[in-house]
Nucleic acid binder design. Structure first.
Lengths: 261, 261
DNA sequence: TAAATATTCAATTGATCAATTGAATATTTA
DNA sequence: TAAATATTCAATTGATCAATTGAATATTTA
């Protein structure tokens, strides 16, 4: 028997089903209703990530939990608009929130969500050639920035002839960072130039593929005579490759301090 | 300088940019255009998977390449409608096709696409409680079908007291299957009952989480006095867990024979 | 040339947004 | 109670679909 649940989700005409006599035809119909319902539910996640604005919000939330105001500022949207997009993400179960005093802190609902968004970005990067062009374009425009891959960074770090800097906001660094990285938020970079080695290569990283903070950092460093390149990957990519070692050996990801108010 | 490419993708007013004098403001604007363009491109994939119908098509293509007619039959859609959905998927670069005689064979454009769709399904399964309910519902409705996980199957197969059957169409079995499985397409099951052991547990698997073929198989087997359960996972899930061993040790995935015409 | 398959075209029906804003309301803290 | 933050409401503007069909057209084989 098709239960009420199906009729709710699919608005299916129960009377019609009841009058159906042929068992085989009935089973086929039930299978169809089931499939329609299942794919409709999965499509909820698809719909959530079909908006560029919401993708930008998710990308920011990959760095940790944030208030509505912070997200609005980062994405150049109004608070009202941001809040509404967040409600949509909430309905698709991709994000969660927590009230702390007068602030609402939003975060990704699950570690799986972060990995999923990351794999979406990597898939898009690989499949959509326009995206590759777009990225090449901006790196060329901006002073012919050189990029290195994660594997290359690891090789150079083992040799010890590289300085790694994290140019994201301090809170994001404190939430999680690549071991061995120094936190120099982009707006403090010019103040900290004296502490950086002029004879060694500097590798800057930021939020990842869609973020230009490290590009900006490399531009500033080069303008002051430093040798600097950009790391292509983000903390998240690093983490998804070095998951176990990271959490066990380094333990620099202190969840308790994850929200800086 | 913002290049023409941006103005094409974003319909951006170049004149306005040229007249912009402040360098910092200009950079901010360029960053914004870049981000908007990047997220718009990524959203193309989101849009492709925001339709339940297209998700169903992608799910079928996970089993290998198929003609438009086959896909239309499997999804209960008209050929015209199927073709149009396939054009959308083509534009989002998730599928590719090849002409062979009078047929067009569509397939997933990349192995990454299959893994991505699989992770979408797993994410939806975990996050969307309605989906869990829907599935419980149907298994309860259909004779209280029991399901086992991949890990459990492996344990039982090592003990040797289990018969594994693949109830998908023969072409899909030939394309790729779990080692040790016997191909018994659902429509041939009743003919093959005599060849199955009555005293041993039979595990049936099909296309995966959204497919009911194995559920049907278990129902038939039980009705004839067999002890039968359903495997929760699909070949794809098995493959994503046992990738290297599979392709090296077994080599039963013969790409040359992947298309049966 | 006839038959089979796939794509495209034109059209329908209906919904549902997409992104956004300003103002009102609710909530919490100091 | 005033101030700050977040959500909701009502409204705008504009697009773009979502899913679908039947018929026409294109393509290929036998």
């Amino acid at each position: 028997m098709v239960k009420l649940y199906f009729s709710i989700t699919m608005n299916y005409d129960l009377e019609y089903i009841k009058n159906e006599i042929n068992q085989e035809v009935f089973m086929e119909k039930e299978t169809r209703i089931f499939k329609d319902s299942v794919y409709a539910q999965i499509a909820r996640i698809g719909k959530a990530i079909s908006s560029p604005r919401r993708l930008e919000i998710l990308d920011i939330l990959m760095q940790g939990s944030k208030t509505v105001e912070t997200i609005a500022r980062e994405t150049d949207m109004s608070v009202a608009n941001t809040s509404q997009h967040l409600q949509t993400l909430l309905e698709s179960r991709l994000v969660e929130y927590e009230k702390r005093g007068v602030y609402s802190y939003y975060k990704l609902a699950d570690r799986m969500v972060g990995n999923f968004i990351l794999s979406l970005q990597l898939l898009a990067e690989k499949r959509i050639t326009e995206l590759q062009k777009l990225r090449e374009e901006i790196y060329t425009n901006r002073d012919n920035i050189e990029q290195i891959k994660m594997s290359e960074l690891i090789v150079r770090m083992k040799k010890g002839n590289v300085t790694l800097i994290d140019v994201r906001p301090k809170e994001e660094y404190e939430m999680m960072h690549i071991p061995g990285a120094n936190s120099i938020p982009i707006e403090d970079l010019e103040k900290h130039l004296a502490t950086l080695p002029i004879n060694q290569e500097i590798v800057a990283y930021c939020r990842g593929r869609c973020c230009l903070l490290s590009v900006e950092a490399v531009e500033i460093l080069r303008a002051h005579g430093f040798k600097a390149v950009r790391l292509e990957a983000s903390v998240q990519e690093w983490l998804s490759q070095n998951d176990d070692e990271y959490s066990n050996a380094h333990n620099c990801c202190n969840k308790k301090n994850s929200i800086i108010s």
